[in-house]
Protein backbone atom coordinates (compact mmCIF):
# COMPACT_ATOMS: atom_id res chain seq x y z
CA UNK A 1 0.00 0.00 0.00
CA UNK A 2 1.37 3.36 -1.00
CA UNK A 3 2.49 5.59 1.87
CA UNK A 4 0.12 8.55 2.06
CA UNK A 5 2.81 10.99 3.17
CA UNK A 6 5.00 10.04 0.29
CA UNK A 7 2.00 10.40 -2.00
CA UNK A 8 1.24 13.91 -0.77
CA UNK A 9 4.86 14.94 -0.92
CA UNK A 10 5.09 13.77 -4.50
CA UNK A 11 1.79 15.44 -5.33
CA UNK A 12 3.05 18.68 -3.84
CA UNK A 13 6.17 18.53 -5.92
CA UNK A 14 4.17 17.80 -9.04
CA UNK A 15 1.50 20.49 -8.68
CA UNK A 16 4.18 23.03 -7.84
CA UNK A 17 5.74 22.53 -11.23
CA UNK A 18 5.17 25.33 -13.74
CA UNK A 19 4.37 22.91 -16.50
CA UNK A 20 1.63 21.10 -14.56
CA UNK A 21 -1.90 22.49 -14.55
CA UNK A 22 -3.48 20.17 -12.04
CA UNK A 23 -3.32 16.78 -10.47
CA UNK A 24 -6.18 14.34 -10.46
CA UNK A 25 -6.18 12.09 -7.43
CA UNK A 26 -8.48 10.84 -4.69
CA UNK A 27 -9.82 12.27 -1.47
CA UNK A 28 -12.26 10.97 1.11
CA UNK A 29 -15.94 11.05 0.20
CA UNK A 30 -18.53 12.88 2.24
CA UNK A 31 -19.86 9.89 4.04
CA UNK A 32 -19.24 6.23 4.67
CA UNK A 33 -16.23 4.49 3.25
CA UNK A 34 -16.29 6.23 -0.06
CA UNK A 35 -13.50 8.07 -1.80
CA UNK A 36 -13.97 10.54 -4.60
CA UNK A 37 -11.88 12.22 -7.25
CA UNK A 38 -9.84 15.26 -6.23
CA UNK A 39 -8.72 17.91 -8.69
CA UNK A 40 -5.72 19.49 -7.07
CA UNK A 41 -4.67 22.85 -8.45
CA UNK A 42 -2.08 23.98 -5.93
CA UNK A 43 0.32 22.70 -3.27
CA UNK A 44 -1.99 23.82 -0.45
CA UNK A 45 -4.60 21.28 -1.52
CA UNK A 46 -2.47 18.15 -1.41
CA UNK A 47 -3.16 17.28 2.22
CA UNK A 48 -6.58 15.94 1.39
CA UNK A 49 -5.16 13.35 -1.03
CA UNK A 50 -5.40 9.68 -0.17
CA UNK A 51 -5.01 6.32 -1.73
CA UNK A 52 -6.91 3.45 -0.15
CA UNK A 53 -8.85 0.41 -1.36
CA UNK A 54 -11.84 2.74 -1.55
CA UNK A 55 -10.30 4.59 -4.50
CA UNK A 56 -12.29 2.84 -7.14
CA UNK A 57 -12.78 5.54 -9.78
CA UNK A 58 -10.84 5.39 -13.01
CA UNK A 59 -9.36 8.87 -13.12
CA UNK A 60 -8.20 8.45 -16.71
CA UNK A 61 -11.74 9.35 -17.77
CA UNK A 62 -11.36 12.90 -16.53
CA UNK A 63 -8.40 13.60 -18.80
CA UNK A 64 -10.48 13.11 -21.90
CA UNK A 65 -13.80 14.25 -20.53
CA UNK A 66 -12.72 17.62 -19.22
CA UNK A 67 -14.66 20.18 -21.15
CA UNK A 68 -12.59 22.44 -23.34
CA UNK A 69 -14.27 25.79 -22.87
CA UNK A 70 -13.87 28.24 -25.73
CA UNK A 71 -10.63 30.18 -25.36
CA UNK A 72 -11.44 33.89 -25.16
CA UNK A 73 -10.06 35.97 -27.98
CA UNK A 74 -6.51 37.04 -27.40
CA UNK A 75 -5.86 34.33 -24.84
CA UNK A 76 -3.87 31.17 -25.22
CA UNK A 77 -5.25 27.75 -24.28
CA UNK A 78 -3.73 26.26 -21.15
CA UNK A 79 -1.79 23.33 -22.53
CA UNK A 80 0.14 22.46 -19.41
CA UNK A 81 0.35 18.85 -18.33
CA UNK A 82 -2.32 17.12 -16.32
CA UNK A 83 -0.93 14.87 -13.63
CA UNK A 84 -2.97 11.83 -12.78
CA UNK A 85 -2.83 9.03 -10.24
CA UNK A 86 -3.52 5.66 -11.79
CA UNK A 87 -3.89 2.08 -10.68
CA UNK A 88 -2.95 -0.74 -13.04
CA UNK A 89 -6.36 -0.86 -14.72
CA UNK A 90 -6.58 2.91 -15.00
CA UNK A 91 -3.17 3.05 -16.61
CA UNK A 92 -4.41 0.81 -19.39
CA UNK A 93 -7.01 3.43 -20.16
CA UNK A 94 -4.19 5.93 -20.62
CA UNK A 95 -2.38 3.52 -22.91
CA UNK A 96 -5.50 2.96 -24.98
CA UNK A 97 -6.27 6.67 -25.10
CA UNK A 98 -2.78 7.28 -26.41
CA UNK A 99 -3.14 4.46 -28.93
CA UNK A 100 -6.19 6.37 -30.12
CA UNK A 101 -4.22 9.60 -30.22
CA UNK A 102 -6.41 11.32 -27.64
CA UNK A 103 -3.30 13.22 -26.53
CA UNK A 104 0.47 12.95 -26.69
CA UNK A 105 2.42 11.27 -23.93
CA UNK A 106 4.04 14.52 -22.84
CA UNK A 107 0.64 16.05 -22.12
CA UNK A 108 0.23 13.88 -19.03
CA UNK A 109 2.30 13.19 -15.99
CA UNK A 110 1.50 9.82 -14.54
CA UNK A 111 1.90 8.84 -10.91
CA UNK A 112 1.59 5.09 -10.93
CA UNK A 113 0.14 3.23 -7.99
CA UNK A 114 0.84 -0.49 -7.91
CA UNK A 115 -2.52 -1.75 -6.76
CA UNK A 116 -3.33 -4.59 -4.44
CA UNK A 117 -7.02 -4.33 -5.21
CA UNK A 118 -9.92 -2.06 -4.46
CA UNK A 119 -13.25 -2.83 -2.85
CA UNK A 120 -16.62 -3.16 -4.47
CA UNK A 121 -18.52 -0.43 -2.68
CA UNK A 122 -21.79 -2.29 -3.17
CA UNK A 123 -20.35 -5.25 -1.28
CA UNK A 124 -19.12 -2.91 1.46
CA UNK A 125 -22.48 -1.24 1.77
CA UNK A 126 -24.31 -4.53 1.83
CA UNK A 127 -22.22 -5.56 4.77
CA UNK A 128 -22.08 -2.21 6.54
CA UNK A 129 -25.37 -0.54 5.62
CA UNK A 130 -26.13 3.07 6.32
CA UNK A 131 -22.74 4.16 7.58
CA UNK A 132 -23.01 7.91 7.57
CA UNK A 133 -19.95 9.01 9.47
CA UNK A 134 -16.71 8.86 7.56
CA UNK A 135 -14.94 5.56 7.63
CA UNK A 136 -11.68 4.23 6.35
CA UNK A 137 -10.68 1.09 4.56
CA UNK A 138 -7.19 -0.30 4.62
CA UNK A 139 -5.69 -3.54 3.45
CA UNK A 140 -3.73 -5.43 6.08
CA UNK A 141 -2.35 -8.71 4.86
CA UNK A 142 -5.22 -10.61 3.34
CA UNK A 143 -7.87 -8.65 5.20
CA UNK A 144 -9.61 -5.39 4.65
CA UNK A 145 -9.80 -3.38 7.86
CA UNK A 146 -12.78 -1.08 7.97
CA UNK A 147 -12.77 1.52 10.70
CA UNK A 148 -15.30 4.14 11.64
CA UNK A 149 -15.85 6.19 14.78
CA UNK A 150 -17.81 3.19 15.93
CA UNK A 151 -14.92 0.77 15.77
CA UNK A 152 -12.89 -1.50 13.58
CA UNK A 153 -13.78 -4.60 11.66
CA UNK A 154 -11.79 -7.05 9.60
CA UNK A 155 -13.13 -8.79 6.51
CA UNK A 156 -11.41 -11.35 4.32
CA UNK A 157 -10.00 -9.65 1.23
CA UNK A 158 -11.87 -11.63 -1.40
CA UNK A 159 -15.23 -10.93 0.22
CA UNK A 160 -15.10 -7.22 -0.57
CA UNK A 161 -12.70 -7.11 -3.50
CA UNK A 162 -14.17 -5.67 -6.68
CA UNK A 163 -14.90 -8.26 -9.37
CA UNK A 164 -12.52 -6.58 -11.80
CA UNK A 165 -9.70 -7.04 -9.27
CA UNK A 166 -10.51 -10.73 -9.03
CA UNK A 167 -9.66 -10.89 -12.74
CA UNK A 168 -6.91 -8.27 -12.87
CA UNK A 169 -3.92 -9.05 -15.03
CA UNK A 170 -2.07 -5.78 -14.63
CA UNK A 171 -2.04 -4.56 -11.02
CA UNK A 172 1.09 -2.49 -11.68
CA UNK A 173 0.57 0.47 -14.02
CA UNK A 174 1.79 -0.04 -17.58
CA UNK A 175 2.62 3.61 -18.05
CA UNK A 176 3.96 6.03 -15.47
CA UNK A 177 6.49 8.74 -14.89
CA UNK A 178 6.94 7.69 -11.33
CA UNK A 179 5.88 4.57 -9.50
CA UNK A 180 4.85 5.35 -5.94
CA UNK A 181 5.39 1.89 -4.53
CA UNK A 182 6.97 -1.45 -5.29
CA UNK A 183 5.55 -3.36 -8.24
CA UNK A 184 2.71 -5.77 -7.52
CA UNK A 185 2.81 -9.11 -9.28
CA UNK A 186 -0.27 -10.44 -11.04
CA UNK A 187 -2.49 -12.10 -8.45
CA UNK A 188 -5.53 -12.94 -10.57
CA UNK A 189 -6.71 -13.61 -14.10
CA UNK A 190 -9.96 -13.93 -15.98
CA UNK A 191 -10.98 -17.49 -16.78
CA UNK A 192 -14.21 -16.27 -18.43
CA UNK A 193 -16.03 -19.22 -16.87
CA UNK A 194 -19.27 -17.25 -16.49
CA UNK A 195 -19.07 -16.01 -20.08
CA UNK A 196 -18.46 -19.51 -21.38
CA UNK A 197 -21.37 -20.80 -19.33
CA UNK A 198 -23.66 -18.16 -20.82
CA UNK A 199 -22.40 -18.80 -24.36
CA UNK A 200 -23.46 -22.43 -24.05
CA UNK A 201 -27.08 -21.69 -23.29
CA UNK A 202 -29.79 -21.92 -25.95
CA UNK A 203 -30.50 -18.87 -28.07
CA UNK A 204 -33.93 -18.14 -26.64
CA UNK A 205 -32.61 -18.52 -23.13
CA UNK A 206 -29.83 -16.07 -23.77
CA UNK A 207 -32.19 -13.58 -25.35
CA UNK A 208 -34.49 -13.88 -22.33
CA UNK A 209 -31.55 -13.36 -19.98
CA UNK A 210 -30.47 -10.18 -21.71
CA UNK A 211 -33.99 -8.95 -22.39
CA UNK A 212 -34.60 -8.94 -18.65
CA UNK A 213 -31.38 -6.99 -18.08
CA UNK A 214 -31.88 -4.53 -20.90
CA UNK A 215 -35.52 -3.95 -20.04
CA UNK A 216 -34.29 -2.42 -16.79
CA UNK A 217 -32.14 0.14 -18.57
CA UNK A 218 -33.30 3.69 -18.05
CA UNK A 219 -30.91 5.03 -20.71
CA UNK A 220 -29.22 7.36 -18.27
CA UNK A 221 -25.97 6.92 -20.27
CA UNK A 222 -23.95 6.72 -17.05
CA UNK A 223 -22.09 3.72 -18.41
CA UNK A 224 -21.05 5.74 -21.42
CA UNK A 225 -20.29 8.89 -19.48
CA UNK A 226 -17.97 7.22 -17.02
CA UNK A 227 -16.13 5.20 -19.64
CA UNK A 228 -12.57 6.38 -20.26
CA UNK A 229 -12.87 5.29 -23.88
CA UNK A 230 -16.16 7.08 -24.61
CA UNK A 231 -15.25 10.68 -25.24
CA UNK A 232 -16.58 11.58 -28.67
CA UNK A 233 -17.54 15.24 -28.95
CA UNK A 234 -20.91 14.13 -30.18
CA UNK A 235 -21.96 10.58 -29.37
CA UNK A 236 -23.29 8.87 -32.45
CA UNK A 237 -25.74 6.93 -30.27
CA UNK A 238 -27.56 10.09 -29.32
CA UNK A 239 -27.56 11.70 -32.73
CA UNK A 240 -30.88 12.36 -34.44
CA UNK A 241 -29.79 12.30 -38.06
CA UNK A 242 -29.13 9.55 -38.75
CA UNK A 243 -30.84 8.12 -35.71
CA UNK A 244 -29.28 4.77 -34.86
CA UNK A 245 -31.71 4.26 -32.02
CA UNK A 246 -34.65 6.11 -30.68
CA UNK A 247 -34.36 7.78 -27.35
CA UNK A 248 -37.48 6.08 -26.13
CA UNK A 249 -36.88 3.58 -23.37
CA UNK A 250 -38.11 0.23 -24.58
CA UNK A 251 -36.45 -3.08 -24.85
CA UNK A 252 -35.69 -2.90 -28.57
CA UNK A 253 -34.05 0.51 -28.37
CA UNK A 254 -32.28 -0.38 -25.14
CA UNK A 255 -30.92 -3.55 -26.70
CA UNK A 256 -29.71 -1.56 -29.68
CA UNK A 257 -28.02 0.87 -27.33
CA UNK A 258 -26.22 -1.88 -25.45
CA UNK A 259 -25.14 -3.66 -28.62
CA UNK A 260 -23.77 -0.42 -29.98
CA UNK A 261 -22.03 0.59 -26.79
CA UNK A 262 -20.36 -2.79 -26.39
CA UNK A 263 -19.38 -3.00 -30.06
CA UNK A 264 -17.87 0.45 -29.94
CA UNK A 265 -15.65 -0.86 -27.16
CA UNK A 266 -14.61 -4.03 -28.96
CA UNK A 267 -10.84 -4.10 -28.92
CA UNK A 268 -10.84 -0.93 -26.83
CA UNK A 269 -12.33 -1.81 -23.45
CA UNK A 270 -9.58 -2.07 -20.87
CA UNK A 271 -11.68 -3.84 -18.24
CA UNK A 272 -11.77 -1.16 -15.59
CA UNK A 273 -15.38 -2.05 -14.84
CA UNK A 274 -16.52 1.53 -14.31
CA UNK A 275 -19.62 1.12 -16.51
CA UNK A 276 -20.98 -1.68 -14.43
CA UNK A 277 -20.02 0.05 -11.18
CA UNK A 278 -22.06 3.14 -12.00
CA UNK A 279 -25.08 1.39 -13.49
CA UNK A 280 -28.05 2.34 -11.31
CA UNK A 281 -30.06 -0.70 -12.39
CA UNK A 282 -27.30 -3.28 -12.06
CA UNK A 283 -26.98 -4.37 -15.66
CA UNK A 284 -23.95 -6.68 -15.84
CA UNK A 285 -22.25 -4.60 -18.50
CA UNK A 286 -18.91 -6.28 -17.98
CA UNK A 287 -20.45 -9.52 -19.20
CA UNK A 288 -20.87 -7.74 -22.54
CA UNK A 289 -17.45 -6.14 -22.53
CA UNK A 290 -15.73 -9.31 -21.43
CA UNK A 291 -17.36 -11.30 -24.22
CA UNK A 292 -15.72 -9.01 -26.75
CA UNK A 293 -12.49 -8.97 -24.76
CA UNK A 294 -12.36 -12.74 -24.77
CA UNK A 295 -13.15 -13.06 -28.48
CA UNK A 296 -10.67 -10.37 -29.42
CA UNK A 297 -7.97 -12.11 -27.46
CA UNK A 298 -8.80 -15.57 -28.79
CA UNK A 299 -9.34 -14.59 -32.40
CA UNK A 300 -6.82 -11.83 -32.87
CA UNK A 301 -4.36 -12.26 -30.04
CA UNK A 302 -4.97 -8.64 -29.13
CA UNK A 303 -5.23 -7.06 -25.72
CA UNK A 304 -6.36 -3.45 -25.65
CA UNK A 305 -4.56 -0.90 -23.57
CA UNK A 306 -1.28 -2.73 -23.30
CA UNK A 307 0.80 -1.06 -25.98
CA UNK A 308 0.18 2.41 -27.33
CA UNK A 309 2.08 1.51 -30.48
CA UNK A 310 -0.42 -1.19 -31.44
CA UNK A 311 -2.61 -0.40 -34.42
CA UNK A 312 -6.29 -0.22 -33.45
CA UNK A 313 -7.82 -3.71 -33.59
CA UNK A 314 -10.44 -2.96 -36.22
CA UNK A 315 -8.15 -0.81 -38.34
CA UNK A 316 -5.90 -3.71 -39.06
CA UNK A 317 -6.13 -7.32 -40.17
CA UNK A 318 -4.14 -10.41 -40.83
CA UNK A 319 -4.49 -12.18 -44.15
CA UNK A 320 -5.07 -15.42 -42.28
CA UNK A 321 -7.68 -14.11 -39.84
CA UNK A 322 -10.31 -16.74 -39.07
CA UNK A 323 -13.01 -17.05 -41.70
CA UNK A 324 -14.61 -20.41 -41.01
CA UNK A 325 -17.90 -18.56 -40.46
CA UNK A 326 -17.94 -17.26 -44.02
CA UNK A 327 -20.02 -18.97 -46.68
Amino acid sequence: MVDVNKLREKAKEVVSRDDVRMLIGYRPGTYGFRARPAFVQGPDEVDELIFTPACVNNLASYIVLEEKLPVPRGEEPDLRKVAVMVKGCDSRALVQQMEEKAYDRERILVLGIPCTGVVDMAKVEARFPNVLERGEIALEGDKFVLSTGGGKEEVAKEELLADKCLRCRYPTPLVYDELLDAEVARFADDDYSDIVELEKRAGAEKWAYWEEKFSRCIRCYSCRNVCPMCYCEDCVLERLNPQWMRRSVDVSENTAYHISRAYHLAGRCIQCGECQRVCPVDIPLMELNRKFYKDVEELYDYEPGTNAENPPLLSTFKVDDREDFIL
Binding site: I259, A266, F292, V296, D321, I326
Partner: peptide, 29 residues
Protein backbone atom coordinates in the same frame (compact mmCIF):
# COMPACT_ATOMS: atom_id res chain seq x y z
CA UNK B 1 -13.04 -7.37 -47.15
CA UNK B 2 -10.38 -8.15 -44.55
CA UNK B 3 -11.66 -5.36 -42.34
CA UNK B 4 -15.21 -6.57 -42.88
CA UNK B 5 -14.20 -10.11 -41.93
CA UNK B 6 -12.84 -9.00 -38.56
CA UNK B 7 -15.77 -6.78 -37.74
CA UNK B 8 -18.43 -9.32 -38.64
CA UNK B 9 -16.78 -12.22 -36.93
CA UNK B 10 -16.87 -10.25 -33.70
CA UNK B 11 -20.38 -8.91 -34.23
CA UNK B 12 -21.74 -12.30 -35.15
CA UNK B 13 -20.26 -13.94 -32.07
CA UNK B 14 -21.56 -11.13 -29.93
CA UNK B 15 -25.09 -11.28 -31.28
CA UNK B 16 -25.07 -15.01 -30.77
CA UNK B 17 -24.08 -14.38 -27.18
CA UNK B 18 -27.13 -12.14 -26.83
CA UNK B 19 -29.33 -14.89 -28.25
CA UNK B 20 -29.48 -13.90 -31.92
CA UNK B 21 -29.05 -17.18 -33.75
CA UNK B 22 -25.91 -17.26 -35.92
CA UNK B 23 -28.07 -18.32 -38.89
CA UNK B 24 -29.38 -14.77 -38.98
CA UNK B 25 -26.05 -13.05 -39.44
CA UNK B 26 -24.20 -14.43 -42.42
CA UNK B 27 -21.21 -13.43 -44.44
CA UNK B 28 -20.07 -14.79 -47.78
CA UNK B 29 -17.41 -14.35 -50.41
Amino acid sequence: NYYARRRFNLMRNFLEYLGVEPQRVRMSW
